[in-house]
Design a protein around this nucleic acid. Sequence first.
DNA 1: CCAACAAAAGTGAAGGGTCATTCATGTTAT
DNA 2: ATAACATGAATGACCCTTCACTTTTGTTGG
Lengths: 178, 178
Amino acid sequence: MPKVGQSYLDARRKQIVDAAHTRFTSHGFARTSMADIVTESGLSTGSIYRYFTSKDEIVIAVCEQGTEAFPTALTVEAVNDFLEHVRALARDKGHARLVAQIYAEAALSPTLAAIVAQQLAAMRAAVAELIPDRSPNDVEQITEAFVTICSGYSQQLAVRGDLDPAPFTRALMAILQG
Amino acid sequence: MPKVGQSYLDARRKQIVDAAHTRFTSHGFARTSMADIVTESGLSTGSIYRYFTSKDEIVIAVCEQGTEAFPTALTVEAVNDFLEHVRALARDKGHARLVAQIYAEAALSPTLAAIVAQQLAAMRAAVAELIPDRSPNDVEQITEAFVTICSGYSQQLAVRGDLDPAPFTRALMAILQG
DNA sequence: CCAACAAAAGTGAAGGGTCATTCATGTTAT
DNA sequence: ATAACATGAATGACCCTTCACTTTTGTTGG
């Protein structure tokens, strides 16, 4: 017989993932210890292992919830707004740092690679929906480049700090018209 | 009085950096132990610490020598050749994996960030040299997007495996004409 | 030219820490 | 009362770094 409801369990799980998310963002996966997650979450060591069987599982959980927003239209304004959103996330929450950690880990772990690849595919599909009047091959090539520039922008933000999105907006528009 | 020549010392140092490069590429920074570098290099633990004072210093040395080639011209053929070069390096040597590690670490370490930022600036400068008849502002925006697509392509290769460079070549050409 | 010596280079076992994970015990809700 | 849930000290493995010791090389005095 369960002692608490599912919503309680979900809240606890989220508490752990949020704490891990915070520490992973500021210190990276390798430099974040279980003790760090314990401290940040306010739970106990043993309690965390009731919800996750290993640190790796927590890493996966954090990567899975990493859904950024998508652009809503392919006008200059909408695209620029989207990049400004990415920029703000990087500035205010260090999100680009976390993304860089995720890509590095995904490059080593097939499990994570599959998760990230699926998220990238979802974003490409979302962008494809917004492209009018093109051959399937064109759409595929355009979305591929589009998403690469967006994640590339995030990568640059992670390493070089705040950057004006203007060159990237311009590049994205050029690709759409090419 | 030195017991061996400078060329000997240089060779030893290279031996260490090469060993570290190999292991860092296949297992990442965090999952590569000093013992791994010892094994891979064929030297002893103590010997390595004669050439580097810490593991972090070896990481820096590996990052510093990470100079990819630059594109030599901005024709479709030259640009495509360049991307094929990046692709081959990723396929044959797992180079994209190492680059992903470097970006992740640079996102956390100001020292590494400075090194990577300088390498990116060098590549932007090299590309800028190839752009004819544009305003300085245009050149800056174009090179920014150009380099981001190239490193973004590497990032995608790291996570998703081998990818045809065609969409990226096309995007790069579109940017140059935008 | 050779033998002793000194300094450079190399070695690897051990120190000192950190860290992920477990488990015996305590607490709470039904 | 009992089973779910929580706790955190203990465990055992791993890992970076050091250092006392050995080997090698260049030098020097006879």
